[in-house]
Every structure is written in structure tokens, then in C-alpha cells.
Design a binder for these strands. Sequence first.
DNA 1: ATCAGATGACAGTGAGTACTGACAGTCAAT
DNA 2: ATTGACTGTCAGTACTCACTGTCATCTGAT
Lengths: 196, 196
Amino acid sequence: MSSGNNLSNDDKLLLAAIDLIAEKGYNGVSTQEIATVAGLSEKTLFRRFGSKQNLLEKAFDRFHYAEEMTKLFNEKLVWELQIDLLLISRTYHKIMNRNRKMIMISIKEEGNLPGFRERTQIHPRQLLDILTNYFMAMYEKGKLIRTDPELQALSFMMLNFGAFMNNLDSNDNFPSVSLETFIMESVQTFTRALTP
Amino acid sequence: MSSGNNLSNDDKLLLAAIDLIAEKGYNGVSTQEIATVAGLSEKTLFRRFGSKQNLLEKAFDRFHYAEEMTKLFNEKLVWELQIDLLLISRTYHKIMNRNRKMIMISIKEEGNLPGFRERTQIHPRQLLDILTNYFMAMYEKGKLIRTDPELQALSFMMLNFGAFMNNLDSNDNFPSVSLETFIMESVQTFTRALTP
DNA sequence: ATCAGATGACAGTGAGTACTGACAGTCAAT
DNA sequence: ATTGACTGTCAGTACTCACTGTCATCTGAT
């Protein structure tokens, strides 16, 4: 078994394309190479997807990350700052890591394939809105100091986005710190700063 | 005057290469295009730099960003948490923005041109060490609560790195917030969290 | 057995690309 | 005026790439 699982040929091509483009960039990979890694012929690639560009677009459609955050939060929040921020932070990293190759592609190719950045929406506005509303609600419950909730939400997101970007290439610049301990410490910092 | 300032031809080529490669990626730009944008002939490009790869390497050597942070901090710190964090944050963004094209190249081409990422060292270890030592010194002065100084320094850096990355492409995802207000608010958050 | 659909091997096309060689023009210093 | 360093134009080379056409092969359902 070379790499042939029980995947469909289409999926083999899509996954190979994602892997290679995330690593070398759209212009750095040939259709021949994608087909070979997928264990199929280049001809099949063009028969099924028509063009290289369409192959990448179909990959986005197939493996886009769901907007699961909305539901998660509305159900699981317990209105205890530290606990909720931990949940939010962990969920964020789980989602981002699951889609890190697509995110890497959208960053690298934003100059070549316009519109892809918006599709992956690296900093989902959704999450910012949810966090902002969460902070506002917490303030009205008397569990948060008086601040600009949108700015606080943005800070918290930027913190996690920076940590995610730093880990993306996995040649960890700071191997002494694990993601989990980082999350716990940063959440504690925000908790200390925002509790009355 | 088309775009011909009083730059040398070499610099015209280097700057054009940086602009275009940062936008479209190394494989997305041809030497012909670089020469045209520089207002010179492709032949001159090869006469002066020999190869496309060497052109990019010379661009790195010429426009790398200095390690000016060490001196800046050792001289200007006043051991007042909020003031110092403001200085650090602003200096960080100043340096990063001045070199954002080179940083963008090193991110995009890390799969194609290995070794470039290390040269730009996106999250300078230097800065982390300085911040860590600063937090330790502040703790011994009694001006900081007891925490893990390296983790706090890392959090602060990730926060600013995330903000920088978000602004990189300048198609601001959150136009309602300016960088300056973001800096002030995030510094205030850390100050609140870390003062005894 | 047969048929339909999917696939592969192979050759090829047209465009683009990095890079070179030959030759001529410009301009300042001597 | 002559030299020399620098530049542009143009043609060309060797190569790669996205993409197509042809035909044989395979597979599974009927």
C-alpha cells in the first residue's frame, strides 16, 4: 500500500494539491507533481477538474472549515470568565490547526488568487462578534470591568492568532513552551486584567 | 519622471524585486517583469546579478532590518510598566512595518527558498529575551506580580505579532480599530494584569 | 460475454521562462 | 578623439508548464 487508502480519486487529487500548494505555493507545484503524489495520472487530473485553478477552488469548497463556533459557544458558555476564555481559546486553535494548510495557502496566494483570503477568513468576524457580545453580557452581569469590549475581544483574538501563526510551520521558534501552557497562562492574564 | 529617482540601477532592481516578490511570490514574477518595473532591461538585471535567485539574496543582504532593539531598550526604559510596554510595542510595530515586505517574502517562500525565514527571524529571540529579563527585573523591584516571565513575554509578543500579521496586507479586516488605539488598549490590559 | 465509464501511456502544442550572445549606442574621463 | 564602463535591442536556446488528443486497458454491472 503506497498511499492508496479508501479515498476516491478525486479526494486523492484534492488532498495532494492542498499538501503541495501549502508547502510550495501555487506556482511552485506542477500538475504533473500533484498527480504523481496522488498516485494518478496527470490526464486524470485534467479530466476531473478541467484546470489547475479549478482544482484548488474545489479543494477549498470541499475542505473549508465549518462555522461551528457559533453553536459551540451559545451552548457551552458557563459565564465564568476563565473557563469560557479557555474554551474559546482551545476551540480557536483546534479549528485553526485543522485547517492550517488551507489558511497557509490563502496567505501565500493572496496576491495570485484573489478572493481566497476572504473565503478562509483567517480572523473570522463571527468570532470577534461573539466575543464582543460575550464581554458586553459579562459586563452587564457585573463580572467584567468597564472597557471597550470590541478592543478586548480583538486583543484576545490577535494573541491567539499570533500564537497560531508562530506554530504554523512547526519549526517551533520557542520549543520550550507548549501551546497548552501558553493558552492557560494567557487566559489567566486576561482573566486577571478583566475581572473587577 | 516615470519612477526614476536618484537611485542607482542596482537599487532600482532590488526594490522592484522586493515589491513584486512580496506581492506575487518568487515563482509568480518573471525577471522580465522585474526589469520593466525597475525601468531597466532584463539584460541589465542578469548582467548585474547573474541569476534571479542571487537578485533576491542580494535584496536580503541590502535591506535586512537591524537589531536596533537591544540598544533602544537598554537606554530608554524607565521601569514604569505601562510606559515601557508602550515603547516596546510601538518599537516592535515600527520595525516590523519597515520590513514587512521582506517578512512577507520569507513567509511565502519558506518552502521554496529555505533559510530565508531564519534570516528575517520574524519573532526575534532577542526581543523575547529582553522582555523576559525586563519582567524579571520588574518583579525584583516589586513592581510586578509573581508569574512566569517568559510566558508573559511570549504572550505580549504573540499579541503584537498577531496584530502585525493582520495588518500586513493592509486590507484591514477590522478597519474600525487603528493600530495605535489597539496598542494602547492591549498595553493597558497587560498593565492591569501584571501590576501587584 | 458485453458494454459503459473511468483510467493510463504517450505524444504533442503553444506559451512562458531563465538566461546567453552579438552588436550598437551613450556618456564621462583622459 | 579615444577609451572604457555601462546600457539597450534583438534574436535565440533549452527548458518547463498547463493542457489536449488518441488509443489501449481495466473494471464492474448487466
